[in-house]
């Protein structure tokens, strides 16, 4: 039973911490962020397993985590409100060419981050060529350019 409780507790803890840490974390991942991710994974693994390295414990934990994930995906499907809370919704960083400074500040981004996505996705050269910039749920920035001509 301990394994199931550990699995559920850590799943929920990680879900909450990653949600409140903000989407910038993954969008602007630096090499150090990946190292941090590895440390978090290692720490979580020790808390999950404790001193029980048996296959039984591993199997119970894996099943617990997968079932939680499957269950949560159904809950999100049935309840859009829960889905909104857990996954969030896309956020406009630039809307109709107008820069949303508050959204940029709150998501700990700047226009340089938007331009990185604009160059990568559409080869845009200037910020005024961006019509919409949207911070998606998966922490990526989607650029919709102004139509030319």
């Amino acid at each position: 039973m301990d394994s199931v409780i550990r699995g559920i507790a850590l799943y929920l803890l990680l879900l909450v911490i990653i949600r409140v840490s903000g989407r910038r974390t993954m969008a602007q991942a630096t090499p150090f962020d990946f190292v941090l991710l590895l440390i978090v994974a290692e720490t979580t693994q020790q808390a999950l397993l404790g001193d029980d390295f048996s296959i039984t414990n591993a199997a119970i934990l894996i099943v617990t985590l997968f079932l939680l994930d499957i269950g949560l995906s159904y809950v999100k499907r049935w309840s859009p409100a829960v889905s909104k809370v857990i996954d969030g919704r896309p956020t406009f960083l630039i809307h109709d060419g107008k820069i949303d400074e508050r959204a940029l500040r709150k998501t700990r981004m700047d226009t340089a981050d938007v331009m990185v996505a604009a160059r990568a996705q559409h080869g845009l050269e200037r910020l005024d060529q961006v019509k919409h910039a949207v911070l998606e749920n998966d922490a990526g920035i989607t650029i919709i350019p102004r139509s030319s001509g």
Binding site: G88, R89, P90, T91, F92, H132
Partner: peptide, 17 residues
């Protein structure tokens, strides 16, 4: 927004922040 089909929810986002 009429020009782009994005399911944004600013009040929810403000609450989340």
């Amino acid at each position: 927004d009429s020009s782009v089909d994005v399911d944004a929810d600013r009040p929810l986002q403000e609450r989340h922040w």
